[in-house]
Design a binder for these strands. Structure first.
Lengths: 392, 392
DNA sequence: GGTAGGGTTGAATCGGGGA
DNA sequence: ATCCCCGATTCAACCCTAC
């Protein structure tokens, strides 16, 4: 056992006979092996998992390398350099190599999952499709894909794509016939203002106090996940006292949240720097009273309504002319959701400012449409749309 | 040509020689073949696409089937039913059949895509991971995954999962080196309250007036997509006059929105009931005013104005001192349109970079001149000059 | 084909100075 | 003391054209 490991709740499980459902040859189950919990196993997760008894963990959270295919350096418009994930652990020679890696760790994980255990994997478009395909091929059963919407994503610096503002999680059970998995439907519903918890979750990225820094103020791990995300996952799909496995432990968010919520964890991590930081972090965690978490309300933000949505929704028609309240200024709605005023084209705000010769303008309150001879402020269309979209 | 097909804007394209970039043997290009637009091609999309000229469409939207059990293409060769979801072999056979089907239509689509065309595919967790993997394996290049968040999703009735409240779209270019694809960054940003459009979009599902019903009030198509979704896609990634292909045309949302937005469409559909409903639907569509669709000047392709022209035009005087926005750096304008900073002489960009100690700098936005006590960005002089030149 | 010009960033945290 | 504003910093990465 590595030095300095905190054992918040020692537990032991006995391995049951492993039944291979895939027809593949699996490592022989280690009957009677003890299950080390609340420890970080140093080394490659596949090797580490082989030493654990089969069918012994209740929940898995995996944040595998994303296999980002980066080429040159990315600069911000001010020519500062974006701190890239250029670590060796994220480099793979090919999609085939990444797929082989993915299948290997998924099989190693499946062996230690209890029959009714479930697995969460997080990824981006670089890797998540390959993970999802591997899961299906290996006879895992996908229960949901869940989208983590970031309140504060990194912008797109080149103006060539949409801002990459989300990551995808896949939630899967061990096999299609494993129907007895844990899902706290009522708790999720209660936490979501008494409507069913949806498959799109809104959280900020991990910054500020929560973000682990080294003595020189640099981030310890490039991709530290927010604790709120892990808390949602554990509250939804595990029980107090359960064993939660994280085969790519990194900075230890899974361990920290597990301790906080009264779960046991097992982490695998190859990098000693990460593992040391994670141990210190987890040691400082104060477990919370589970009662206090029950009604943790979903953070909700007033949805930003693009003017384009009002046009796409048919409330205003491209080609229609907008005026100000007294009909002194005019502009035409373009199909793309911008306005044109003479040769100028821009947002409702920019064109409103231009019309008045002001530096800024709230286009929502400035522009009006003709509805049966009455000038109707376009903000009323936004209000209608908000009301119809409040369900989300 | 199928009866009843509306031809809103007959167009003809000539096939260019197809260069296979994948090393696969492709069907021989059909030189001189005419491109039928604003029509629905009846039959299997793979067969229909083979009759089209190579490299002839600008945008593809595909909503492929993902019901593994019910689609003819996914039956076993002996037409026996694939059942027993817990049978691993059947699972695998079923996925393998779906993958073969996916690769086949993707290759057929790729052949007719222009070099800089892009492709959108929509799906759910049942199929989207397989589609994404196939796209990467076939050397498409994923630009974004986009999440359509539904304001009014179908609730989860069993209470065993999260409400499936989104679908996933993948946006991909034809190959990693196809960098010249269409993306209306400025339009998307202006239409989204002057911040970059994100990868998560919020739309209601298709209901009410928009939803096609048969004479008995039943919905014509089970998965009719909202027009707003297609409008966002076409406005972001195509131009007026472009050809938009939909290989799984269904109820014809792609065609209806294409006609509305001044694009041409090509649809493939096997089911005559769907095709008939789509034709009638599209015939009733009123295109928007072409004025509202006019191409806006893209910043990247505006004519280049030499800084010297601004000096020659008298808007800045040789000898005048420029500063940055906060007055921390200074440089003097030379009569030859270069700046001098101490002993250094160079372009506005080079001297701006030098002043800040950066590798590069946009001198147009960095340097300011004093006009009546106000610091005025020199880019505004360029804008004036551009305006006066375009007027001529 | 190499080089240079000219495009391209939103939300949040944190620290310091002034009201 | 407290608040507010401003500037610096940071976050799973993302270019094209003209000469």
């Amino acid at each position: 056992m590595p030095m300095g490991t905190s054992r918040t709740g020692a537990a032991v499980a006995t391995a049951r006979k492993q039944v291979s459902r895939t027809g593949r040859v699996a490592a022989a189950p280690r009957m009677g092996t003890k299950l080390p919990v609340n420890e970080i196993l140093i080394g490659d997760c596949i090797a580490a998992l082989e030493k654990l008894p089969a069918e012994s963990v209740d929940l898995v959270f995996a944040d595998p390398p994303y296999n980002l295919q980066l080429e040159g350096a990315l600069m911000r418009p001010d020519h500062s350099r974006v701190d890239a994930v250029d670590d060796a652990w994220d480099q793979f020679a090919s999609f085939a190599a990444y797929d082989a890696f993915t299948r290997a760790w998924l099989l190693a994980v499946r062996r230690v999952m209890k029959k009714n255990a479930t697995l969460w994997v997080i990824g981006s478009y670089h890797n998540i499709f390959r993970v999802g395909t591997a899961l299906q091929d290996l006879n895992f059963w996908i229960l949901n894909d869940v989208v983590w919407r970031k309140t504060n994503p990194m912008p797109n610096f080149r103006g060539k794509r949409f801002t990459n503002a989300h990551e995808t999680l896949i939630w899967a059970s061990r096999s299609p016939d494993a129907k007895g998995y844990t899902f706290h439907y009522d708790a999720m519903k209660a936490a979501n203002e008494d409507v069913q918890m949806r498959s799109d979750w809104l959280f900020p990225i991990c910054t500020g106090e929560e973000r682990l820094k080294d003595t020189e103020g640099r981030k310890v791990h490039p991709t530290q996940k927010p604790e709120a995300l892990l808390a949602r996952i554990m509250l939804a799909s595990s029980n107090a006292g359960d064993v939660v496995l994280d085969p790519f432990f990194g900075s230890g968010t899974t361990g920290a949240v597990a301790k906080m919520l009264g779960r046991n964890f097992i982490g695998c991590e190859r990098d000693l720097t990460y593992a040391d930081a994670a141990r210190a972090r987890i040691a400082a965690v104060e477990p919370v009273d589970p009662e206090a978490l029950k009604a943790a309300p979903e953070k909700r933000s007033e949805p930003r309504i693009p003017f384009l949505s009002v046009v796409e929704g048919g409330m205003l028609r491209p080609g229609e002319v907008l005026t100000d309240a007294r009909g002194r200024h005019q502009a035409m709605i373009r199909a793309d959701g911008r306005l044109s005023l003479g040769p100028a084209i821009g947002s409702i705000h920019k064109i409103g400012a231009l019309a008045q010769g002001l530096p800024a303008c709230n286009g929502w309150t400035f522009w009006h449409a003709d509805r049966g001879g009455e000038r109707v402020c376009i903000d009323s269309f936004r209000a209608q749309l908000r009301a119809s979209m409040s369900a989300a």
